[in-house]
Design a protein around this nucleic acid. Structure first.
Lengths: 208, 208, 208, 208
DNA sequence: CATGAATGAGTGTTCATTCAT
DNA sequence: AATGAATGAACACTCATTCAT
């Protein structure tokens, strides 16, 4: 019985590991070649197997992106909620959200790239309704943090709130398209400098 | 003679106008659905004709994007060169380049969106080598302006130059994906506020 | 009235001439590129007009080959019948038929080439049933001449009649594919040497 | 181990056999309907599969003809070289070449037919440059054999050499268009009678 | 007579997917 | 788990043909 359970666990784990391996490969390929221009054969080839064999592990090409994207988004929202639950001041919340975003970019770079390129396109299918939901929730969250920051006097009041939101969102998330884990600059370092640019701008301070 | 010339001009113009019309439609569709996921039939349908009819005007789907992208890039570089030729200070050059960029986003929004989504993918073909060339030239130009600004004391010296470049490039150009000509905010207004955010940041000034 | 008739005749003639011109061009193009691989546009271009304009003169691409082939076959059969009507001996009939064949190759080279390449393919359509009829009549005629020649002692009796027929037919008609009117050898000269080879072979005579 | 090797051989062989089967079908269809008027779907249907399925085995329609033609030409030239290497007299070389030609017509009838109908057309593409090469080599070879035969006194000197060459080439190879393997006359028998006609002609000998 | 824009059926080809092995 | 042959719908593109001008 014990042996059996160990076996069952072993194969279940092995299966999950193989899935994860294949998804990592798929994410990388989808990110670099684009989801719809990538063929299932290319994904399979990158994984060292034949096209048809992927269908033992996944129901469809769509199911692969689905899992890639939802895994990433689930982790992202978990971390965002942890930050929001800490009940910090607006500025510190803001800084923490930026840091968490870069952490996720570091961890899920291919998924982020796919998200940016394909979310509008995929969002049309009911299966991917969660992409739109996430986006809306995302906007609400940031606008609310910005709002609070303006009320608290941490952020400028002379700018359009929605414009600030988009400015930040775009600049942060698009960095996934050039970010390289293990590159010249760490995710932390990029996060730090990006936070500085967003908050203080790139202009030399008059007093410096 | 006069009639003849008018006729000749008329037909040549009519042809060019039809091309421009169809290209505008194609650009819009490519931008919203993605180049490779858009079928030629969809473009044609959006133009109110049948798929095959597009081939009377254009050699291929590729030829369409080619014309869309190169028209945009030609105009962009013309205006950039006008700015650089004016020999302003680094800060003013910087501001003028941002303004010109937003002017082009306003004029060529679909082309810009296509450029961002497809340039890496298309750049692989020799036909689209100019996309890579443009990108390199673009980076050199901005880095050189930033360099000059740092030397002139206009920009902060404590940030990574390449990071600043990417920060600006991403934030400016990605705005094409949500910008709506005739929307709540004009291109000029967006350019102004973006310039403020880039230069001064979103943090409330201590003295205010 | 007289002027009118002259005009009417003039235009009717002009029309017929234009048709003939266009058919000559079409025949040349069909012969060199193959009927089905030749596009109507290519024919038109070779004639210096646009594709659609051919439809003022002809009902269809098919109608063009039809006219090209039937014109040739009508002339061929007229001349064959003249030969057969002369009631010569088998050998002289044979020689005259060969000569007439080469005369037609000279006059209708492109039509002959088209006939050889496309007759089986076109013959499937009821419109081109006459191609098959012609072929059958052709075989009967030659077999009967050969038969008579064998009975008269002019031709060898130790060979398969059908084989002789095919041997001659192939060697004569295929020459259309390389024959050039106005080339090094005239049609007459080729006819003479071919007749010699067919009758006497290429072996050196023992007595020479 | 033995089982494995058999398996490996088995699959490789099975694949090669399937290719050969499909190529044989394709050759037959191309030969009877013409290469460019034959659709890939027709080839597939003749093979009992669907159009797209052919692309599992072959890269393109072009790749199919390519393989069909080059397989035939490779074998043809191998056998020609064996004949030429035997260093026989001109007449025997001549006879052996004719015999080998008919052997190849018997073996590769559809390929021969395709070669005759499409070689000019296909030869334009660089991929099929070997068709032109083969043709030139072919002419050189025959002309040289004829030359030698004339010098040796085996062949008549009063005929145009190039004309003899074309006479033979056409008459021999066009026979592929009507030859039926397993028909009334065997390839050997046809070769024998053709050789007789070419060498001695069809005229009754004076002494007989 | 000829143009040029459009049609629509059909072509070669691709590709996600299936399934017996 | 993976293979490999096959499917079939969809794609970019071609081309004979039409027709208002």
């Amino acid at each position: 019985m014990c042996a059996r359970r160990r076996d069952a666990e072993g194969t279940a784990t092995a299966r999950a590991e193989r899935r994860a391996e294949l998804l990592a490969v798929a994410a990388e390929v989808f990110a670099s070649r684009g989801y719809s221009s990538t063929t299932v054969r290319e994904v399979a080839e990158a994984a060292g197997i034949l096209g048809g064999s992927l269908y033992y592990h996944f129901d469809s090409k769509e199911a692969m992106v689905d899992e890639i994207l939802s895994t990433f988004l689930d982790d992202l929202w978990d971390s965002y909620e942890r930050v929001l639950g800490a009940e910090l001041g607006a500025r510190d919340t803001f800084a923490a959200l930026i840091a968490e975003s870069f952490r996720c970019i570091d961890l899920y770079r291919p998924a982020v790239v796919i998200y940016q390129h394909e979310s509008r396109h995929l969002g049309a299918h009911p299966r991917f309704a969660y992409l739109g939901d996430s986006q809306r929730r995302f906007e609400e969250m940031w606008i609310s943090v910005l709002d609070r920051g303006i009320r608290e006097g941490a952020f400028r009041a002379d700018l359009d709130k929605v414009l600030i939101y988009r400015f930040i969102r775009d600049t942060v998330w698009v960095s996934a398209s050039w970010y390289q884990s293990g590159g010249r600059l760490s995710a932390d370092e990029i996060a730090k400098q990006y936070l500085a640019m967003i908050l203080e701008g790139i202009q030399a301070s008059p007093g410096t």
